[in-house]
């Protein structure tokens, strides 16, 4: 029985590009997110992967209503955020939290760890004042930071430690949905494993739903229930996590999976990669039809005709490729 907590319908986020110093003129538009339809089930972990610049962070920021949506709807527990009032959006902030890609830029450099974590607790009156310190200590322990660091400032931490502060802050309000933009990329594998176990456990215990953006496909595969693969602002493949990585169907997913580095020197130095010809396309004037066609080893005339829709391939899998049956 599907029980979606978050639903995206045909979401589009475009950025106008302005050029000119005195007289601004619109020089084009970046279609960073261009028609994404997705649903996130309660308690589900959805992995989001794709080429750098394909719009993952923009999609995350669109869900969080941090950038104006160009089109489509974002529905959280039945409420349409894209057309909601400012007050409504603010209320949902509490239920939906984001961990940013760059922890240094997203932490206030003048606030100690304690202040950073106590602020949301106090602002949203999560607990009585007297309990704030105990709560902060518990949050720090949850993400594996020793409470003795409480009075330190962000610049006094290593990259990985800062990322854990950011995660603790996202957890402070016990949200229902967390959008995590590369939350573990900066962490060593042991702490990465700790955070992944933690997120998995929170998911189970608090029925937390998670959108998990990452480049490390072995990590995404491990934590996710389903994986969505993005290419140039659109989803090109969607399905159960292990299935997508072990039996990729879309030609882009195949190339992506073949490039995963393995922690084994002999294997790593001898294996075959599907090398993608050409450069990633520009979202300013995307290729006609399937945006992947200029780099796809299977491309034919027909691929340029129209944008292939996401079509069911097997019961749980959807793929956007017109030549799927032939390749």
């Amino acid at each position: 029985m599907p029980d979606p907590i978050l639903e995206l319908r045909d979401v589009k986020t475009h950025f106008p590009i302005q050029r000119g110093f005195f007289i601004k003129r619109q020089a084009g538009v970046v279609k960073a997110v261009d028609g994404v339809t997705l649903s996130l089930q309660r308690g589900e972990v959805l992995g989001l992967v794709g080429e750098s610049g394909c719009g993952k962070s923009t999609l995350a920021r669109t869900i969080m209503q941090l950038v104006p949506t160009t089109g489509g709807t974002v529905v959280l527990e039945g409420k349409n955020l894209a057309s909601g009032s400012a007050a409504e959006v603010r209320r949902t902030r509490r239920d939906m939290q984001m961990v940013f890609q760059d922890p240094y830029a997203s932490l206030n450099p003048r606030m100690t760890v304690f202040a950073t974590l106590a602020e949301p607790l106090i602002v949203h009156r999560v607990c009585p004042r007297a309990e704030v310190t105990a709560r902060v200590i518990r949050l720090m322990e949850t993400v594996g930071l020793a409470p003795r660091f409480m009075q330190k400032y962000p610049h006094e931490f290593s990259g990985g430690q800062r990322q854990r502060i950011a995660i603790a802050r996202a957890l402070a309000l016990e949200p229902k949905v967390i959008i995590a933009d590369e939350p573990v990329s900066a962490l060593d594998v042991s702490i990465q494993a700790q955070i992944l176990n933690l997120l998995a456990e929170l998911g189970r215990r608090m029925n937390l739903s998670l959108v998990f953006i990452a480049h490390d496909l072995s990590v995404v595969k491990h934590i996710s229930d389903r994986i969505a693969v993005m290419y140039l602002g659109r989803i090109v493949e969607l399905g159960p996590a292990a299935d997508v990585i072990e039996r990729p169907r879309h030609p882009y997913t195949r190339a992506l999976v073949s490039a995963i580095p393995t922690p084994n020197p002999d294997v790593e130095r001898t294996r075959q990669r599907i090398v993608l010809a050409g450069d990633p396309p520009s979202p300013i004037d995307p290729p006609a039809g399937c945006a992947f066609h200029p780099r796809c080893p299977h491309a034919r005339e027909i691929c340029q005709a129209a944008v292939p829709p996401l079509m069911p391939d097997s019961p749980a899998r959807e793929v956007a490729c017109v030549r799927l049956a032939e390749i």
Binding site: G50, S52, H215, A255, L256, A259, P261, L276, P280
Partner: peptide, 12 residues
């Protein structure tokens, strides 16, 4: 950490 922010194809 030159490639942690990059997808695996760009990383390669």
């Amino acid at each position: 950490e030159p490639t942690t922010a990059l997808d695996v194809t760009v990383q390669a």
